[in-house]
Design a protein around this nucleic acid. Sequence first.
DNA 1: ACCCAGGGTCATA
DNA 2: TATGACCATGGG
Length: 228
Amino acid sequence: MTGLAPTATPSVARLYSTLLSHYGPQDWWPGDTRFEVMIGAILTQNTAWRNVEKALARLVEVDCMTPERMLGTGETDLAVLVRPSGCFNIKAKRLRNLCGWLCDYGGIEAVAAWDTETLRAELLAINGVGPETADDILLYAFDRNVFVVDTYTRRLFARIGVTDGDLAYDRLKRRVEVELTGGAPAFGEFHALIVEHAKRICRKTPLCGNCPLRAGCAFGSSPHGPAR
DNA sequence: ACCCAGGGTCATA
DNA sequence: TATGACCATGGG
């Protein structure tokens, strides 16, 4: 659709295979059920996953991991339960919004029958679910052929020059969905690999020797990172 | 003592 | 439409 990428810019497929061969399959998303994946997607907003795990464990411990039982827990009690994940008052509301939506439409199995466009639009209509969270849910809870764009994706693509400066969410998303073959499993691995790369590489030394992307990386330390 | 994390909403200009 | 404040815990 858009013009061909200049041959000098690394291809999306090449970036994917490089990360995959270096780190191996990540097998995302961690979560026992589709509902738990959805809850994790809310809780991990601007939050380290290790803190999300604590909140998820508490929800399981009090047997709260269904839409009905989560709604049955009061908002205040729910906020206390998810406290380790931060922003707990806001997240308690968002979890309730999500659960209310599920119950209104007949549960997870019912909404799972919808086509991807409809499901995405409905998810985005929930207060507290933005583009990334919606795509997390579509990809990892409902196995849809959707790529998730996050801050790391933007940073990485910008630094190694695959974006041509256009960082708009939908453009970036479409680009990966078009250029990377393999469907949902590949999209899921790619997003996970990008996050894993950010977590493990170049935090302290921007051009560390173990970086599989070498000089093209310079990625992971701060929102701005080293220039170029 | 800072900075950041697997974002999103809302109020301003 | 485009920024900025805000949420808030826990680890580096």
